[in-house]
C-alpha cells in the first residue's frame, strides 16, 4: 500500500534574467491511499500535479511537507536506490537505452540486483512472452522497434525484477490511438494476472476508465475526488469533476461493462417469455461472451437495431438498448460484471 499524507511540493519557477522567481505550487496538501493490488489512476489536466505525486513515491522528488508511506514505512527512511530497484517505473518517453539490446534493457534492474545469468535469461524470455513480443526481439536494438513495441519493452523492463509496486507516468501517451488501445487492453490483462500495486498517471479519460480500479481526480495540486469509476459516475460530487469527466464518462464506462452480464435470459427477467422467440432477431449474429456494452452499442448503431442476441455463459440471451442506458446505475455497487477480467 502506498499512502500520501498532507503532501506539499513547490518548484522554483525560472524568473526574469535567470533569477529564481516565485515558487510554483505543484502539490497543495494531498492525502491519498493507493491500495495493494489495485490499479490507481491519477487523472487530471496538465499542471494538476499528478506526475509530481507519482515521482515522490520513488523519491525522484522529495516533498516540502507531509509524509509518504510505502507499506507503512516512511519513504524518507528508505535508501532511494533500493527503493527504486524495488519499484517498477515506466514513462511516456519509454527511455530505452539505445546502446543496449532489448534483452539488456529488460535486464537492467535484475543485473543491478545481482541476479545470475540463467535467471536473467529466463526472466527476459518470460517477460517478452508476457508483453507478446517474439523471443527473437531479445537481440534487437531499440531503434529497430516501433513506438508500440518499444513501450511493450518499457513495460517489460518495469516488471523485470517483479517489483510489488509499479509507477507509470503516461506510458501510452505518445502512441497512436490503435496501438494505445491494444497496449491498454494488454496491460489490463497483465495486471489482472499479476495484481501489482499500480499508480498510473494519465490525462486520457478513456484510458483512465478502462484501466482504473480507483480514480483520483486532481486539479491544481489538490485531490478533488477519489473512488471507483462507478462511484464517480453515480456521484461526481464536485462541479469541476462533473465537468472534467463530462458526458463522455458514461460512454467510456460502457467499454468495461460486459454485454453478457447486462443481457436478459429466458426465465430470469420481466420479459422472460419473449427471449426464446426473439433470440435470433432476424438472423443478427450474436455478441460473444467477451463483448463489452460499447461493442454492443456500436453494433446496434451500425445495424439499426434496438436489441441484439448475446452468447453468454448462461446460454443465449437478449440485450436491449435500455439495458445499456441503465448499465451504469444498475451496476453501481453490484461489481463483478467487469468485462476486463
Amino acid at each position: 500500500m502506498l499512502e500520501a499524507r498532507g503532501v506539499r511540493k513547490s518548484f522554483p519557477r525560472a524568473g526574469a534574467r535567470g533569477k529564481a522567481g516565485p515558487a510554483e505550487r505543484a502539490l497543495d496538501g494531498v492525502s491519498a491511499v493507493f491500495p495493494t493490488g489495485e490499479l490507481s489512476v491519477l487523472l487530471g489536466p496538465s499542471g494538476s500535479g499528478k506526475s509530481t505525486l507519482l515521482r515522490l513515491f520513488n523519491r525522484l522528488l522529495e516533498p516540502d511537507e507531509g509524509v509518504l508511506l510505502v507499506d507503512g514505512a516512511d519513504a524518507r527512511g528508505l535508501d532511494p536506490v533500493t527503493l527504486r530497484r524495488n519499484t517498477g517505473y515506466a514513462i511516456q518517453g519509454v527511455g530505452l537505452f539505445p546502446h543496449m539490446s532489448v534483452a539488456e534493457n529488460i535486464a537492467v534492474v535484475p543485473r543491478l540486483l545481482g541476479w545470475d545469468r540463467d535467471r536473467i535469461g529466463r526472466r527476459v524470455r518470460e517477460l517478452l512472452e508476457a508483453v507478446r513480443l517474439p523471443a527473437s526481439f531479445a537481440s534487437r536494438r531499440p531503434r529497430e522497434l516501433s513506438g508500440g513495441e518499444a513501450q511493450r519493452v518499457g513495460v517489460a523492463r518495469a516488471l523485470a525484477a517483479d517489483p510489488p509496486v509499479l509507477l507509470m507516468d503516461e506510458p501510452f501517451g505518445a502512441l497512436d490511438a490503435l496501438t494505445r488501445e491494444a497496449l491498454q487492453v494488454e496491460f489490463a490483462r497483465i495486471q489482472g494476472r499479476l495484481r501489482k500495486t499500480v499508480v498510473f498517471v494519465t490525462h486520457d479519460l478513456a484510458e483512465a476508465v478502462l484501466l482504473a480500479d480507483r480514480l483520483f481526480i486532481l486539479r491544481e495540486g489538490r485531490l478533488l475526488r477519489s473512488g471507483s469509476p462507478r462511484e464517480l459516475l453515480a456521484a461526481a460530487g464536485d462541479d469541476f469533476v462533473a465537468d472534467f469527466l463530462g458526458a463522455r464518462f458514461g460512454i467510456e464506462m460502457l467499454g468495461r461493462e460486459s454485454a453478457a452480464a447486462a443481457a436478459e435470459y429466458a426465465g430470469s427477467g420481466p420479459a422472460g417469455g419473449l427471449i426464446a422467440s426473439a433470440a435470433d432477431l432476424g438472423g443478427a449474429a450474436p455478441l460473444g461472451p467477451e463483448a463489452s456494452l460499447r461493442d454492443a452499442l456500436a453494433r446496434m448503431i451500425a445495424e439499426g437495431r434496438t436489441a441484439l442476441p448475446v452468447e453468454g455463459p448462461r446460454g443465449r440471451g437478449l440485450l436491449r438498448i435500455e439495458a445499456i442506458a441503465l448499465a451504469g446505475r444498475a451496476a453501481a455497487g453490484a461489481g463483478g460484471n467487469d468485462a476486463r477480467r
Binding site: 525522484l60 536506490v81 527504486r84 518517453g93 527511455g95 537505452f97 539505445p98 537492467v108 523492463r157 509507477l167
Partner: peptide, 15 residues
C-alpha cells in the same frame, strides 16, 4: 543523451 533515458536510469535505481 535522451532525457527519457536518464530519467529511466534514475528511476530504476542506477547510482
Amino acid at each position: 543523451v535522451d532525457p527519457a533515458a536518464s530519467d529511466a536510469a534514475n528511476g530504476m535505481g542506477m547510482g
